[in-house]
Nucleic acid binder design. Sequence first.
DNA 1: AAGTCGGGGCT
DNA 2: AGCCCAGACTT
Length: 354
Amino acid sequence: MNEFYKEQVRDSLVSWFLEEKRDLPWRNTTDPYKIWVSEVMLQQTKVDTVIPYYERFIAKYPSLESLAYADEGELLKEWEGLGYYSRARNLQTGVKEVVEQYGSVVPSTRKEISKLKGVGPYTAGAVLSIAYGVPEHAVDGNVMRVLSRLLLIKEDIAKPKTKKIFEEAVMDLIDSENPSAFNQGLMELGAIICTPTKPKCLLCPVRENCSAFFEGIQDELPVKTIQKKTKIHKVKTVVVRNQNGQILLEKRPSKGLLANMWQFPMVELPTPNHTVEEVVEHDYGVAITKGPSIIEFKHVFSHLVWEMESFEGVLIEEKDLPSRCIWLTIEEVNQQPMPVPMLKIWNAWKEREI
DNA sequence: AAGTCGGGGCT
DNA sequence: AGCCCAGACTT
């Protein structure tokens, strides 16, 4: 790339961004903590989804210190529905590291900030450039799509190795005078103009610099290999009440899927001959009778599917309840962080006809 | 390098 | 039904 080309791309992109950027809550600040929170929430998540979560989160945790020592259950409740819940715990861990090891000052070098839990190559570059004005790359899916078209990069973006090509391209192209606007401009362009399908090339500020547009192959880029299909799990969930009207809840393990989130007793029948009653008694140490159906639906995760059937259950006898389980009142159940499929069951149960 | 980890909104 | 999204962590 010659200097004239690079300068033209920089100036066009930055000017366009400063003129056309959306007014987003995290764009009214350069507080590295708030930028950090926004970047973590935005990982694999659409802007429109994040906005209300960000507003509530910053109101409840306005500073590094307020988040560092927050209750984990309350924190997960704030994150409820946003998904990828390990982001929340990693964020808190990272924030605590800043408070205790960096005197509550978010590090301003890639080397230091990358040591923080949950801060990968993208988030490091985003916080550095947006909060501190450091000329560092912040390569996400948008940036790879935009640059694959602009620079005609045909490497498979599904391969980890390919990201390095884009990081080097950004470092070569970046506007050192305004790395914040440059990096955000690349992402904004990917979100608004240079979209995955039907890119709006006629509105693009760097159309005349775009190799893919010149070749007429913008629809063929980026190249990305397909991922494999999801596995289906048929799961049965029971909302069990005891004589006191309390509901049985279970805390999921601290690692793996939906870590530390709460759910109603859930079983996967080993064979079709097994009954929900006997598997629940085996897994949860409670004898129940299966009542009316509550709701049936399919819940799709990234890599698996739950085909959910849920029932009301009445407690017959409590034998030995595992320590991960607890009886809670309706109000207490409402306070626990639960994944969306459980919230669906819970809401359907509360609205059922008695 | 491949698998894991949510949920919603497009097409 | 598949794809994508301001990715990071684990194995």
